[in-house]
Design a binder for these strands. Structure first.
Length: 773
RNA sequence: GGGCUCGUAGUCUAGCUCGGUUAUGACGUCGCCUUUACAUGGCGAAGAUCCGGUGUUCAAAUCACCGCGGGCCCA
């Protein structure tokens, strides 16, 4: 008989045609129903080339979630979005064009960013499509579109009206030469020679002298406490006592803190607002009241007393002189200090408190913990990342950024009295260029306003993704039927940011949790287990890998190699070798395609045995799918298909399927069972490898798509799994003996079928051409 | 520097909750075999101080403690 499948191997190039067909048939288009299953898809950020192979793997698995739900009878809503706000594209654009953001006209700079994003995005969409994502590409959204930004602004205006937003000062990295705050990503560190000054402090009560070393003596006026390591015996009796600060004569407490290093300087460290980032953390943690010692002009303020107006470096020289004259210096060491510099001006940055917008979150923490408890995490262990984070939040969320490429904060300020004006929602506002919609200030009646130039933290945009895709405030029926969404799939590294902020924002806006399940994936590492980065040169570009091996190979690798929630290593060689399994599946199908499809037959004991094994497989797969753990079905299916179905059953049933020495009914039993098993395998595998299963399904079994099928159900059959090992041992024994005796597999041999396998005797004799006994 | 988290052959993984088998299976490697749907295959072999140390126990991959290493987040 001629096999229906003629080609000798699965050709990944067929995937393109299948993709096209799915698109033509609108197979994955979403129509609102009642049993909607909404995925809060992470919108990927096009930050540069190449896209991360770990991310490609991540999206392949998110698609498996969608397909699993679809094959479980759900009406799947799988939105596709692109996240386009934020710092990375600004840095990319600066580098690409050799320009500086703040030295470029804002409108012009935004245009350049937009073009860069369009470019990077096109490639990303291309990869997502060729991976076989069954998403709603037709309606894909961008977080920098007018619609999305308008929506982000609406949610801000809403929260502003509810009183959830306020202004407060917080320390910022400040480059006084460029006159701007800078992001952490724009800081470079350099070893710079400086003086470590050992100053004499005095305890208030006992007048005992304590030596404190610092590279920033000019900040004595902003010193608020002195910390010592709790294990440092030199100071154990002084903890909690007051110290007199030299020159200023201020009084400060000695506080124990683990960040004080016993071996550095004298072991006692002065904490000032703000010498470095550690000071910032300590002020926050110890709830100290900050003093502004350095102003926006980069000079000492009035709290510095006689040093007011000097630059920090000049003030330092002067203070050291004065301290020495008053005999308050024990010694001075020349050291090399790792100093944070502004990447652009190469001057040391100062940390200066500035006014920023805050969203209240401390008052929601208990509520967040409760929601966190209610949400099912896959794997459960990663719920801990959220819970630990909720325990450690100590300040409200600063939501304003002094950047260009982001959603503008919709506020104008009165030029006369600074009263803020927040417009009505419903429009996309750009206060840096738009005229204030208000005629005059509500407070003082002045008619001149200045638009806010700042943008939102990007998490302000991305944290409303579940509300945007469910059309919150825009389509009530749609929202009601899709929110709360079913699942948030995302990476482990942004649980504290994206997952947490989404929980916070959605609860504040809707009073409900955004999803009932969260699926957390690990991180893609290189072959040696190191993080991939462009600078290290160990990054793997996913596109050529997918083009070469095919999406299904890539997807099966992802499923069978990645343990749920754990970090994983990416190796091209390993991805390529996964293809062998698809070849095996192809060949099994090609062989079976030479037999007709029949509805029933007389089942032999061997048929009943493989159907019982198949039943076990269905049960394992469905268990794995229900936990969105694709490692379980993929490895189980490979094991079953290769080692049980192909290696044992097909060999056992082959002679009977050919009908030689068997009745037609017996023959039909074999043919029926062969197809029953293969069609079940295809359905079980369809969420993981949608292309090859579709091709084989449509070639063999149906005109219609396999992706409209449901996952197979468990059937009520007797468990015969104890036979599996006996059968495979007996078959191996026969094959080995023939090999030893240099017989062909067709040759006859005299081996008795053991009593335990007597029920399979007829099949086994025919299979091995055993001399009848 | 701090917090969290993980650690079983080159790689992925079962076993760990509840201590007792020769530590499971697969990929890769090596050797042999044109053999029947499939050499994109078959058969076989080697490969693990279960991260290290200490403790508990008759007995530890498994329990406890202390380290070391990777990763992530924060600084």
């Amino acid at each position: 008989m001629e096999p229906k499948i003629a080609e000798k191997a699965w050709d990944p190039k067929l995937e393109n045609a299948i993709l096209k067909k799915w698109e033509e048939e609108k197979l994955y288009d979403f129509q609102l129903c009642d049993n909607n299953y909404t995925i809060d898809t992470p919108p990927p950020y096009p930050s540069g080339r190449p896209w991360h192979i770990g991310a490609a793997s991540h999206y392949a698995q998110i698609d498996m979630i969608a397909r699993t739900a679809r094959m479980s009878g759900k009406n799947v809503y799988f939105p596709i979005g692109i996240d386009r706000n934020g710092l990375p594209v600004e840095l990319y654009t600066e580098k690409k064009h050799g320009i500086r953001m703040r030295e470029t006209e804002r409108g012009k700079f935004l245009e350049l960013c937009k073009n860069a994003l369009d470019d990077l995005e096109a490639e990303m969409i291309q990869i997502m499509k060729s991976l076989g994502l069954s998403g709603d590409f037709k309606n894909y959204y961008r977080t920098d579109s007018e619609d999305y930004r308008k929506f982000t602004q609406e949610t801000f205006i809403d929260l502003w009206k509810k009183g959830a937003i306020y202004l407060a000062t917080r320390p910022n990295n400040y480059d006084w030469v460029s006159g701007t705050t800078i992001a952490d990503a724009e800081i470079v560190y350099e070893e710079i020679p400086t003086k470590l000054v050992y100053m004499k402090f005095i305890t208030k009560e006992t007048k005992k002298q304590i030596i404190i070393a610092s590279t920033r003596p000019e900040l004595l006026c902003a010193c608020k406490t002195v910390i010592v390591n709790p294990n440092d015996e030199r100071y154990s009796d002084l903890i909690g006592k007051e110290l007199i600060v030299p020159l200023t004569n201020n009084e400060v407490k000695i506080t124990p803190h683990h960040s004080a290093k016993i071996e550095f300087g004298s072991g006692a460290v002065m904490v000032c607002s703000y010498g470095d980032q550690n000071d910032v953390a300590l002020f926050r943690e110890l709830q100290l009241v900050e003093v502004i010692a350095i102003g926006l002009d980069g000079r000492m303020t009035e709290v510095a007393g006689e040093y007011q107006g000097l630059k920090p470096k000049q003030a330092r020289t002067k203070i050291i002189e004065d301290l020495e004259n008053s005999n308050l210096v024990e010694k001075i060491e020349d050291i090399s200090h790792r100093t944070p510099l502004s990447e652009r001006s190469k001057t040391p940055i100062e940390i200066v408190p500035m006014e920023e917008y805050y969203l209240k979150q401390k008052d929601s923490l208990e509520k967040m913990k409760k929601l966190g408890e209610e949400i099912e995490f896959y794997p459960n262990m990663h719920k801990q990342i959220l819970m630990n984070w909720l325990e450690s939040i100590s300040i409200d969320w600063p939501i304003s950024r002094r950047r260009f490429y982001g959603t503008e904060i919709p506020i104008w300020h009165c030029n006369e009295c600074s009263e803020p004006f927040v417009p009505e929602s419903g429009k996309y506002y750009r206060p840096w260029k738009d005229k204030c919609p208000a005629e005059k200030c509500a407070k003082c009646g002045n008619t001149e306003f200045t638009g806010e130039e700042r943008t939102f933290d990007t998490w302000m945009d991305s944290s409303v993704s579940p509300l945007f895709v469910t059309k919150f405030n825009r389509d009530e029926e749609f929202f009601k039927k899709t929110y709360p969404t079913a699942i948030r799939p995302q990476a482990k590294d942004i649980v504290r940011t994206w997952l947490y902020y989404t929980l916070l924002r959605c609860e504040k806006l809707t009073g409900e949790k955004p999803w009932s399940e969260a699926w957390i994936m690990g991180y893609g590492l290189d072959e040696k287990g190191m993080k991939m980065s462009k600078s290290k040169g160990n990054a793997i570009d996913p596109l050529p890998v997918i083009e070469k091996s095919g999406a299904d190979t890539f997807r099966f690798w992802s499923a069978s190699e990645i343990n749920q929630g754990y970090d994983f290593r990416c190796s091209e060689q390993k991805i390529e070798s996964t293809r062998k399994f698809l070849s095996k599946l192809w060949n099994v199908s090609r062989f079976l395609s030479s037999f007709p499809i029949i509805k029933s037959g007389q089942l032999s004991e061997s048929d009943k045995w493989i159907l019982s094994e198949l039943n076990k497989l269905i049960s394992v797969c469905k268990e794995g799918y229900s936990k969105y753990n694709f490692f379980i079905p993929s490895t189980a299916i490979r094991e079953f298909t290769w080692n049980i179905f192909a290696a044992q059953y097909i060999e056992i049933a082959k002679a009977r399927a050919y009908g030689i020495g068997f009745t037609d009914e017996e023959r039909d039993g074999a043919i029926f069972t062969l197809h029953k098993v293969l069609s079940t395998i295809l359905k079980l595998l369809a969420p993981i490898t949608p292309f090859i299963t579709e091709h084989l399904w449509q070639t063999l079994y149906s005109q219609d798509s396999i992706h409209k099928e449901n996952l197979p159900d468990i059937e009520n059959v007797d468990d015969m799994s104890e036979m599996t090992q006996l059968l495979s041992e007996f078959n191996s024994k026969v094959w080995n003996e023939k090999k030893q005796k240099e017989l062909s597999l067709k040759d006859s041999i005299k081996i008795d079928v053991p009593e335990t396998l007597s029920q399979f005797k007829k099949d086994l004799i025919a299979m091995h051409n055993l001399e009848s006994n």
